[in-house]
Amino acid sequence: MATDFVLDADEEDEDTTPQEGRPSVPIRIGGKVYQAMCPKDVLWAQFAASQNTRDPLEMVRRAFQFLDGAFSSEVSSELERRYTDPKDPVSLKNVVRAARQVEEHYGPQMREEMKALGLDIEQDSAANREERRSEEKATGQRKTTKKTTSAKPRRRTAAKAAQAE
């Protein structure tokens, strides 16, 4: 069967990768300097989604995936050996901090590219948080959440307990 029509999701510059045109950035982790690349856009979207979850294991998993996308496979393997080695000072704190720093470095450009695709991946990065706080101060408005419980639970008095029975 001949195909007369094909949907083409490839861009005109299909020979390039998302990392091309974005120079790598040096990042120190556990006293050693590595070269971090800009992770692919799908990792950005996953990392952004993990910032809105309350599941710490999901957040950690996405941070590791995000950093794996920022480093070569050799560096990722080396870092995995380092953070599982009890004698090495690299810990979860280093991994999360490194993921945040990569996000803050490449974030403005990636957010613009994702918005052009119709995806808003605003992350709760330190830069974003400061921007929101300054907007709140300028407008005098702050986002509030609805209170669902009272500050003190009500106590039943002995008289009311007797009436209920």
Rank of each mutant, 00 (worst) to 15 (best):
R81V: 08
Q35H: 08
E20Q: 11
R156A: 00
T144F: 09
E74G: 09
E122K: 06
L67P: 00
A70Q: 07
E165H: 05
L7A: 11
P39T: 11
Q123G: 15
A9C: 05
H105C: 10
L117D: 07
N94K: 09
R97V: 05
P23K: 12
T145A: 12
R129M: 11
A161D: 00
E80T: 15
S24W: 06
E112F: 01
S77F: 04
K152N: 00
L92V: 11
D13Y: 14
M110K: 13
S125W: 02
R22W: 13
V25D: 08
E130T: 04
W44N: 08
P108I: 04
R142W: 00
F64A: 11
A127F: 01
R133N: 07
L67R: 02
A158M: 08
E12C: 12
K147I: 07
Q101M: 13
A161G: 00
E11W: 07
N94S: 11
D4F: 15
L119D: 02
V95E: 01
G21A: 05
E135P: 01
T145V: 10
E78L: 13
K115P: 02
E131F: 06
P39V: 12
A48S: 11
F47C: 07
A2Q: 00
E74F: 10
T16F: 14
V75T: 14
F5R: 15
V75Q: 05
T144S: 10
D4W: 13
A164G: 01
Q123W: 05
Q51V: 01
R28V: 15
P26F: 02
T53R: 09
E74L: 10
S24H: 06
E103P: 05
A164Y: 02
A9Y: 15
S72A: 01
R155N: 03
D120C: 09
V102I: 15
M37I: 06
Q163V: 04
Q163H: 05
L117F: 06
E112H: 02
A45I: 13
E112L: 08
Q141F: 11
N128I: 08
D85N: 15
M114A: 15
L57D: 13
I121N: 03
T3F: 14
W44V: 05
Q101E: 12
T149I: 08
P86C: 01
A36V: 10
I27A: 01
D8T: 00
D68P: 07
R100W: 09
K115Y: 08
L79M: 12
S77V: 06
G118V: 03
